[in-house]
Structure formats: structure tokens, C-alpha cells
Design a binder for these strands. Structure first.
Length: 484
DNA sequence: TGAAATGTTGGGGCG
DNA sequence: ACGCCCCAACATTTC
């Protein structure tokens, strides 16, 4: 009886730079390529709506890509422990490979599965396929996890400089499946995309998920976006951000491919500043740092990193929460961001900070409410990044924004969207209102509003809170914690 | 990877 | 010419 090898695809939906696949190819025997929709994932960690849409597209492309190379992606749904055990015994699987995930559910599940498969006589190997560094690789001089980004990243960069990344091209042909291998499900059976109503139209326009789209996005960014990245990445109407986050999350591109191609472009393009490279790479650094934090603080999504925040006097106001979610706060930059998110599954980073700060500081609502909304609506929703970033904004996190750092949504708008281009795109009812009034429509006089065709409180809401008063309330609430 | 309040300085209008 | 005030521009401190 012929044995076979199995690659379990998870957050590594690509064929290039795929260590698990490369290891399986070296076995030179029939190959099972598997994706499992893990129904044992705790509910709050199940992919949100936008991530599901992304996953559907990405899986479909991967399946097609595998089929074109002479194999087939097996798709299953259920308990991975049982599914793997069944496949291993049914197809005489001698070797199983996957790339590691770093949240608590996955870690515990994978430890258990590894033991079980080894008992079945199977050789199991896992690799790092999703990060530049393993989360535990950078440690302080007394072998403790870092709490602050800057020293973490200084150390991490030194390690990266000496690393040899496992680059590999996508194989041109794949070995066949075992001869008696029967399909399980197809991508559609997972029911990941919305049907009634189909709200994904904006996502389809904005994105091309999959390995191919990732490569195109990387090239576009390096050619057009990297120049002056350090400054221009702050302007949401410009295209000077990489927009690679959803691809990195799904593993459709490896972070080291992004890293190395960036190095290469910088070396070959004299007009690019080293600072642009440094700033872009440090964004990848934040991603690494988030995973470092999540690894050592498995409850990062649920619990305040700084427990002093457990007694923060959060308020809950359902109407205000809904206004925020729907982009109807009356602050144009905030609303533009929230609508971009709803429409495209993405929001520019600068605007993420402004909108998040608004929920937590102006509306005094628990960061977890914001985290949940982003988790459900972002195509790049990532357990580590989303949790760490929300805690950073709230001030409850490691290396967090200090409590007194309260973004003024009007000032941010004037600074980073001076002409109002971003606002006009996402809040079209204000598109005839000239700057500077587009940043604060309630400050425009009646004649100007009439001329722009805006009736406040009808076409566009009045601010749901007044900035100055909300700021004072936030300062008072935070002062009450007495942590500073 | 803030914003506002407060302090300081220097030019210019003006008695 | 001089002192005084105003205030913009910038710097520093505070939240």
C-alpha cells in the first residue's frame, strides 16, 4: 500500500514561499492538500462577515490554482481532529505538514492533533509561514517578553538581518492525489458569502483576493506607493499605503517576500529614501509585535492588558454605537472612515486611529465593542493586530497611547484631508461643501449650507457629541483611573 | 502615531 | 524716540 503526504492549509493560502508544501513535495509521494473550516473555533473568534467573504474568494483561487497543477484542494468542515484522523487512516498518510497559528485555540488544538497523529504513526511537522519571526524569538536580555514596541523592534530587526528566509517558487506541477481520493466539499458548501442581501458588492469592487492579487498589490505599492511613504501614508485620499494587510492575514503572500522585495526596490531606486523603507518595514514590525503580545497574553482580545482598566467607567449607548457603526456621528472624517470600512472592508490606518479614538474617548465606549465591529467588517481582521491595536488606542494596552492623547476629529481632518477629497468620496452628501467647512459642517453659515445643498440634521447629522465637552469628560474618566 | 493651555518673544501700531 | 499694548508665531507645559 502506497503512503501519502498531507498539507493542511490554514492562514497560508498560497503556493509560493510555502515551507509545508515544499516539505511534502520532498516526500515524492501522493499528496493530499486540505483546508478545514474549523467548527470548533469559539464563536467570538470565528471569522467575521468580511473575512468570510475574503476567505471564500481566496480559497476559490487557491483551489483553481491547485487544480491547474494536477491536484485538488480537499475542503472539509467540522472538527479538525476527527477529520485529520479519518483522512490519515483512510489514505495511509505518513507525513502531515502545516504552518503554525498563534492564538490560544489554534495552539491547543494543534498540540492535541500532533499528539494524536503521532500515535497513529504519522510524522508531523509544523513551520512558521506567517511571520518574519516566531513570536517568542525576540526577547529582552533577561528572557522576558517585550512590552514596548521600540526595543522589541530594535532587537527583532537584528535577528531579521541575520536570517535566511525560506523563499520558494510555486511548483509548476503538483504530485497527484492518492488514486482513491474522493472530494469532500466544494468552496460554496462552506456558505461563506452573503446571499440575502448580498452586501459584498463594494468588496468585490475594491479587492482581488488570492495569491495573484497579493502579488499585484505588492508591485503596485512598491512602484507607486513607497516613494515618500513616510509622509504620504498619513493622507487617506492618497494611495501611499500598501493595502497588503488582508493578504498577509490570509497568508496569500509571505511577510518575508514583502520585506525582501522592499529591500530590493530600495537598493535599486536611488530616489527612494531609506526612511520610507524604515517606516514601511516598521509597519510590518507592528504586526510582528502584535503577535508577540498575543502569544504571551492569550486573552488579548478579551482582557485589558493593563488590569487597572478593568474598573474603567465605560458607558454604553446603543444609539451612539449605531451612529458610529453607520458613519452618522456628524464628524465627517469619522463618518467617512466608518463608511469606507462598511463599503470596502478596509479603512486607512490614520482614519482607523481617529475613528477608534472617537468611539473610546468621545463616546466612552468599551474598546471591545469597537474591536468586535472591526472584527466583523474588516477584510484584514486579525486576532493579534485587531486586539493589540484597539487596546493601544484605548490606553489599556502595552506601550499604549497615553490617556490624554485624544484625537480632535476636526483637526485631523484639516491636517490629513485638507481639501476634503477623502470625505467627498465617502460622504457624498457633503461633496459640494467647500473646505474648510467640510471638516465641520455645523460651523458653516446657513447661506453656504443652502448653496451646498446640505440641510443639517436631515441630509447630514449634527455632531452627536460636542468635541470640547467630550474631551473634558474623557479626561475626567481617565483621570479617575489614577494610573498616571 | 495629539491637542489645548500657557509662556515667551519680537515686530509694529500708536499715543 | 520711547514705552506700551496687541497679537502672531513659536516654544513649553499640561492634560
Amino acid at each position: 500500500m502506497l503512503t501519502s503526504s498531507l498539507v493542511w492549509f490554514r492562514q497560508d493560502l498560497r503556493l509560493r514561499d510555502h515551507q509545508a508544501l515544499q516539505a511534502a513535495l520532498a516526500d515524492k509521494q501522493p499528496l493530499i492538500l486540505l483546508y478545514i473550516w474549523d467548527s470548533t473555533t469559539p464563536l467570538p473568534q470565528q471569522w467575521g462577515g468580511a473575512s468570510c467573504w475574503w476567505l471564500h474568494q481566496s480559497l476559490s483561487e487557491l483551489a483553481a490554482s491547485i487544480e491547474a497543477r494536477g491536484n485538488r484542494l480537499l475542503i472539509a468542515k467540522g472538527n479538525p481532529t476527527q477529520i485529520l484522523a479519518n483522512l490519515v487512516s483512510r489514505y495511509q498518510v505518513s507525513h502531515v505538514y502545516w504552518h503554525r497559528c498563534y492564538n490560544m485555540h489554534s495552539i491547543q488544538r494543534d498540540i492535541h492533533i500532533k499528539q494524536q497523529l503521532q500515535q497513529q504513526g504519522c510524522d508531523v511537522q509544523s513551520f512558521n509561514g506567517n511571520l518574519l519571526l516566531e513570536p517568542w524569538q525576540a526577547q529582552t536580555s533577561d528572557n522576558k517578553p517585550y512590552q514596548v514596541f521600540t526595543p522589541y523592534w530594535r532587537n527583532a530587526q537584528q535577528i531579521i538581518a541575520d536570517m535566511h528566509f525560506p523563499m520558494s517558487a510555486a511548483p509548476e506541477r503538483l504530485p497527484p492525489q492518492p488514486t482513491d481520493c474522493t472530494p469532500l466539499l466544494c468552496v460554496d458548501d462552506l456558505a461563506l458569502i452573503p446571499t440575502k442581501p448580498n452586501w459584498a458588492g463594494g468588496l468585490t469592487e475594491a479587492w482581488q483576493p488570492g495569491e495573484c492579487g497579493a502579488e499585484q498589490q505588492l508591485t503596485t505599492f512598491l512602484e507607486r506607493g513607497l516613494f515618500d511613504y513616510k509622509e504620504k501614508r498619513n493622507f487617506p485620499a492618497l494611495v501611499h499605503v500598501s493595502r497588503l494587510s488582508p493578504y498577509l492575514h490570509g497568508g496569500e503572500i509571505s511577510p518575508w517576500r514583502v520585506w525582501l522585495r522592499c529591500e530590493e526596490v530600495i537598493a535599486n531606486t536611488p530616489q527612494l529614501s531609506i526612511l520610507d523603507k524604515v517606516h514601511f518595514q516598521s509597519e510590518l514590525g507592528w504586526r510582528e509585535f502584535s503577535h508577540h503580545l498575543l502569544y504571551y497574553h492569550p486573552l488579548l482580545k478579551e482582557k485589558n492588558f493593563r488590569s487597572a482598566f478593568d474598573k474603567f467607567p465605560w458607558q454604553y449607548n446603543e444609539a451612539a454605537l449605531r451612529s458610529w457603526q453607520q458613519g452618522k456621528t456628524g464628524y465627517p472624517l469619522v463618518d467617512a472612515g466608518m463608511r469606507e470600512l462598511w463599503h470596502t472592508g478596509y479603512m486607512h490606518n490614520r482614519v482607523r486611529m481617529v475613528t477608534a479614538s472617537f468611539l473610546v474617548k468621545h463616546l466612552l465606549m468599551d474598546w471591545r465593542l469597537g474591536e468586535q465591529w472591526f472584527w466583523d467588517t474588516l477584510v484584514d481582521a486579525d486576532h493579534a493586530n485587531n486586539s493589540a491595536s484597539w487596546q493601544w488606542v484605548a490606553g489599556s494596552g502595552a506601550d499604549a497611547a497615553p490617556y490624554f492623547r485624544i484625537f480632535n476629529p476636526i483637526l485631523q481632518s484639516e491636517k490629513f484631508d485638507a481639501a476634503g477629497d477623502y470625505i467627498k468620496k465617502w460622504v457624498p452628501e457633503l461633496s459640494c461643501l467647500p473646505a474648510p467647512f467640510i471638516h465641520a459642517p455645523w460651523q458653516a453659515d446657513a447661506a453656504l449650507l443652502a448653496q451646498a445643498g446640505v440641510q443639517l440634521n436631515k441630509d447630514y447629522p449634527l455632531p452627536i457629541v460636542e468635541h470640547g465637552a467630550a474631551r473634558q469628560q474623557a479626561l475626567a474618566a481617565y483621570r479617575q483611573l489614577n494610573t498616571h
